[in-house]
Design a protein around this nucleic acid. Sequence first.
DNA 1: CAGCATCCCGTAAGATACTG
DNA 2: CAGTATCTTACGGGATGCTG
Lengths: 125, 125
Amino acid sequence: MEVKEKLKKYSDAEHCPVRNVISHFSSKWSILLLHILAEESPMRFGEISRVLEDISPKVLTSTLKNLESVGLVCRKVYAEVPPRVEYSLTPSGRTLIPALAPLVQWSIDNFASIVGNRGQSGKRS
Amino acid sequence: MEVKEKLKKYSDAEHCPVRNVISHFSSKWSILLLHILAEESPMRFGEISRVLEDISPKVLTSTLKNLESVGLVCRKVYAEVPPRVEYSLTPSGRTLIPALAPLVQWSIDNFASIVGNRGQSGKRS
DNA sequence: CAGCATCCCGTAAGATACTG
DNA sequence: CAGTATCTTACGGGATGCTG
């Protein structure tokens, strides 16, 4: 198939798998969150909050909900007092991690050159 | 290193390679654009516009600039009348494509289940 | 042709306070 | 503890019109 045809087709977000999928975990914390859960599951809400110390509960909630809605994360509620909720990766979520690995590696390898002299030298806001 | 330490470190966007890198091409058209240029380089501004027919010049410009600023795309201006500008992937940009491939594949494989019955059946706006 | 300038909108994301 | 509610800001993205 012609490149142009293919891309014309994928210009429509609804028909582009990559965009459709990426859009779901390209939010600020999604990938980080996935990797946290990949290495340590299950985790409780508060635990995650403590690790991602800069995330607000609201954002964490929405990020988790988003990931849950696309079946990457599993949310398990325990009817206890005090309440306990545990998050973990779904099988589907687990398969995403290795698919992401090369990209992560690339990012690490190219981080320096991408950021240029930022982050490399003493630059810290 | 402890997972938590690692993630605490990466919570700061500036120290997280993945987020830092991904943030640059997680915009709506970036990946599509990269793949277009991966298959057909160089391309002129107008050519790209025609392929990505839904993109506005402004957004295309900013997307290209963004990709250029991180060294993924190369912009070549020809001092002619009428002006001609050609865009192509940099070597760095080319290495990104294969790193993205597994993710793309994963997206394709999991597209259906992610979107659920949307896009599968007749759903079209 | 290849943009830039400008205005507008929707949504991600942050801060803060409150609750089952 | 695990969120929700509300407000506010920042930015991506789109539309339109203009220019070197």
